[in-house]
């Protein structure tokens, strides 16, 4: 049935966009300093919580304009998560640079646990919920009594993600900062020899990655309406999987991987059993990596010398 498949496609793309945004943060940090930032998923979770706090404050003040509240929540969350990302790198990763490879990884897991516990104690362990911020949607088609819907929220999520990714792509490909980021990724020592302050650029990479995670956090919050302190773990692992599937280190790969995982999840839940959707995702990851060890858009590091 076309209508049903179309509905899964819409759901999958929406979900995939959120994964893609988080995955970009993983792949960026991996590209530039070669570590997996396991606390990244928790920055996403913090982003969602900042959103819920701002939205609650807004409704507490009796301001009813939800889209405005959402926009303010987005901005506040982006700024605060940027600060989180900056601080995490400064406090937990930079002192370990030049140490053995596992050290920052363990430190990242520590940061992840710290953030989860911090939010759990300060915000409570129970699920927090908001009413649907932008209700309603389009009816796209109807077939045998099944209505294909695209909610306004889904449209908002897809548009916001595309705009965010557009800005991000511009920064990476066209600005001096983006060029310096790519230079460090390719040869950090040479970049420093040419006058690039590598520490500053690495800090900014964390700030940008965390800001993207904040956007994803707000998207997640407004799409599902329910969050808890543990959402960062699951979404983080999924996004990390997306980054690996797309080819870790590749920015378009992260977005592609995110979309694929969103689609696999949506279609699997729609046609097979929802309980096994994660099994499906990771099985496909395993199969892809068996045949393409560097991921879909990753490159084997063979360069002409």
């Amino acid at each position: 049935m076309i209508a049903y498949a179309l509905q899964q496609l819409i759901n999958g793309i929406t979900l995939g966009m959120v994964y893609g945004l988080i995955a970009v943060g993983y792949t960026m940090v991996y590209g530039i300093i070669g570590m997996i930032n396991f606390a990244h998923g928790d920055v996403f979770m913090v982003g969602a919580y900042v959103g819920i706090i701002v939205l609650t404050a807004f409704s507490g003040m009796g301001i009813a304009a939800v889209p405005v509240g959402l926009l303010v929540a987005l901005l506040v969350s982006v700024v605060l998560c940027g600060v989180y990302g900056f601080t995490i790198e400064r406090a937990a990763y930079r002192p370990l640079r030049g140490s053995f490879r596992l050290a920052p990884l363990i430190s990242a897991i520590g940061m992840s646990i710290l953030l989860e516990n911090f939010v759990q104690t300060s915000q409570g362990a129970k699920d927090r919920a908001i009413p649907e911020p932008i209700p309603g949607g389009f009816k796209i088609m109807q077939q045998h009594g099944f209505v294909v819907q695209m909610s306004y929220m889904q449209i908002a999520i897809i548009v916001t993600t595309l705009v965010t990714l557009g800005i991000f792509t511009y920064i990476v490909t066209k600005t001096p900062l983006g060029r310096a980021m790519r230079a460090i990724e390719q040869d950090a020592k040479m970049a420093a020899l040419l006058g690039v302050n590598t520490n500053r650029v690495i800090s900014l990479t964390f700030v940008i990655g965390s800001a993207l995670a904040a956007v994803a956090g707000i998207m997640f919050l407004s799409y599902y309406g329910v969050i808890n302190f543990f959402i960062g773990f699951n979404a983080g692992i999924k996004a990390f999987t997306a980054a690996v599937l797309g080819g870790i280190g590749s920015l378009p790969g992260a977005v592609l991987g995110g979309l694929l995982i969103g689609l696999i999840e949506a279609f699997w839940s729609g046609y097979a059993t929802i309980a096994y959707k994660d099994v499906a995702v990771y099985s496909i990851l395993a199969i892809v990596l068996m045949f393409m060890p560097t991921g879909l858009l990753g490159r084997a590091d063979i360069e002409k010398v």
Binding site: R182, Q186, D187, K189, M190, K304
Partner: peptide, 8 residues
């Protein structure tokens, strides 16, 4: 070793 940025 020249150290050209290969993907730029």
């Amino acid at each position: 070793g020249r150290r050209i940025f290969p993907r730029m």
